[in-house]
Simulated scan of single mutants.
Amino acid sequence: MIDGDDLRAMRINAGISQQGMSKKLKCDRKTIHNYEIGVSDIPSSRLFQWLTFCKLDLSILLNQVKAVRGEASKNGQSKLLDIMSVILLFSPLWSHLIVTPLYLLLLGVCAAYSVYRKDINMTHIAAILFTLTAANHVVFEAGIVDYVTPIENQLIQGTLHFGIHLMFSLTMVIALMFRVQLSRFLSKSKRIALTHFDGIFHWLYIYASLIYLLALLENIAWSHFELKSWTLIYDNFEGLIYIGWALCCGALLAMMISSTNSHCCNDKQTTGNE
């Protein structure tokens, strides 16, 4: 089992500073420090990235896995180990470098599809989701927070980091709650109306806003009040947000299917009347 001391030793042997590793893993230095002192466990996706950046020979780890599997097969537990191995191998897909572009791609596809279907309500919902999510992504990819705050001040940097996320999320909630009024302001179409899906999306982003708020409070407790064990939200931050995104994707797909079915029904009714 790889512990914090092992991680620290690998990083030092590779000549990588804590700040350098934080940039490679797209997280702040506090997270790296937590991993190395054992305050929090490193996720499997980041562990593989850590090993890769430290240029370790992963074949040694794989040989150990094979040895463990051989021992497990004797005890009839090899299937369980295989399932866990598959989960471990696919866990890097939870990286924000993959998930965020995929989420934006789906939002863009939904927006394009709704324009093709001439569904004004779905177009505006997808456009709101895409615009604010893309703007939030650009702010952090551009490194604006890192430029305006000192790296060593974790309180200010963390407050800005989670505060900006919270601001975008609350803006999304307000925009989705008043989506019909906003749509009527932007368009004179007579087909603008409240849909069954309007009551879903703003709740998903209320959930996301709650996660951002808890992460913000947790960062203050960690940085200012030295409550080093308060890392529950922080350690699971990305996964908690991705749950909301996954539900949002499900609602978008259901909305696209519903739009297709309604168009098919309308076409059949038109053909029957003729």
Rank of each mutant, 00 (worst) to 15 (best):
I2N: 07
G4E: 01
S17E: 01
Q18R: 15
Q19L: 15
G20F: 08
C27I: 11
I32Y: 07
H33L: 10
I37C: 11
G38D: 06
S45R: 12
T52D: 15
F53T: 00
L58G: 04
L61M: 15
L62M: 11
R69K: 12
K79H: 08
L80A: 07
D82Q: 09
D82Y: 03
I87S: 07
L88H: 13
L89W: 08
V99T: 06
P101W: 06
L107P: 01
A111V: 04
Y113H: 02
Y116S: 09
D119W: 05
I120G: 01
N121D: 03
I125C: 09
L129I: 03
F130C: 07
T131C: 12
A134K: 05
A135N: 11
A135R: 06
G143K: 09
I144W: 01
V145M: 07
D146A: 12
L155G: 01
L155R: 06
T159A: 11
T159H: 01
T159I: 13
I164D: 07
F168R: 09
F168N: 00
S169V: 03
S183R: 08
L186N: 10
L186R: 09
K188A: 11
H196S: 15
F197Y: 06
G199M: 10
F201P: 00
H202N: 10
I206Q: 09
Y207L: 04
A215C: 02
E218F: 01
E218W: 03
N219I: 00
S223D: 12
H224A: 14
K228F: 12
S229N: 07
E238R: 05
L240S: 09
I241H: 04
A246P: 11
L247N: 13
A251L: 10
M255S: 10
M255Q: 04
S258Q: 14
S259A: 10
N261E: 14
C265N: 15
N266D: 14
